[in-house]
Amino acid sequence: MSVKIGIIIGSTRPGRNGGTIARWVDTVAAKRTDAEFELVDLLDYDLPHLDEAVPAMRGQYANAHTKAWAEKIAEFDGYIFVTPEYNHSTSGVLKNAIDYLYAEWNNKSAGFVSYGAGGGSRAVEHLRLVVAELQIADVRAQLGLSVLSDFENYTTFIPTARHEAQLDAVLDQTVAWAGALKPLRESAGELAAA
């Protein structure tokens, strides 16, 4: 049973490190045969500050940008969130993108690759709270990258064998949980169709 995992680039900042990291994650993931992976760049989705009048839990999206985002996120069985750490949290643009939707996230898995001065661990702590509310099962393994020691001049990511081994653990767990949660997604879909 193959699953599809979205690798979400959680920054739109000019000169961001997230794009390079996410492409490396995708390259490592492409070596696997147990899942299909796809990069999802928030730059490709023009999501203004949350502008839906009806709460996402109702699934009554009014705007074309929300519908396009919902369609993309619904395609996946799990996610790898590549997040920066800004001011001890994740980026505002990633939190905003997450808040747009509800059911599209449910009963799926999530792993985290973070970066920042302290490896982005506080951004992941916050994201774990957020994804739990969306019924996403977050995995224990995570990869934290320090811009002080894992990058050259704070901008050029230099991956090592240690990084790849840690990423493999994140991918192993995310793929396994995505597969394990498939019956829940299927029964939720049957209930919605009834």
Rank of each mutant, 00 (worst) to 15 (best):
G6D: 12
A110H: 11
A29H: 13
K4H: 15
L43R: 15
I21W: 11
Y154D: 10
G92Q: 07
P183E: 13
A178T: 09
L47C: 12
V40M: 02
A193N: 14
L39R: 09
A70T: 09
S89M: 05
G119I: 14
G10N: 10
F151Q: 08
Y115H: 01
K67Y: 05
W69V: 04
D168T: 04
A141T: 02
L39D: 02
G118V: 11
A165L: 09
R16M: 08
R32D: 05
S121Q: 14
G15F: 09
T160R: 00
A141M: 04
I158M: 14
R58W: 10
G179H: 04
D99P: 06
L39I: 15
T156S: 09
D44Y: 00
E52Y: 04
L127T: 13
Y154T: 15
V93R: 03
D77T: 02
A74T: 13
S187K: 12
Y100K: 09
E75T: 06
V25N: 10
A22H: 05
N96M: 08
S114P: 07
V147C: 04
D41Q: 00
T12R: 14
M1V: 11
Q60P: 02
L42S: 10
P84M: 05
R162Q: 12
S109N: 13
I9W: 13
A35E: 14
Q166W: 00
G6K: 12
A103F: 03
A64G: 04
R16C: 06
V113Q: 11
Q60R: 06
N63S: 12
L167H: 02
M1D: 14
A53V: 10
T83D: 02
A180H: 08
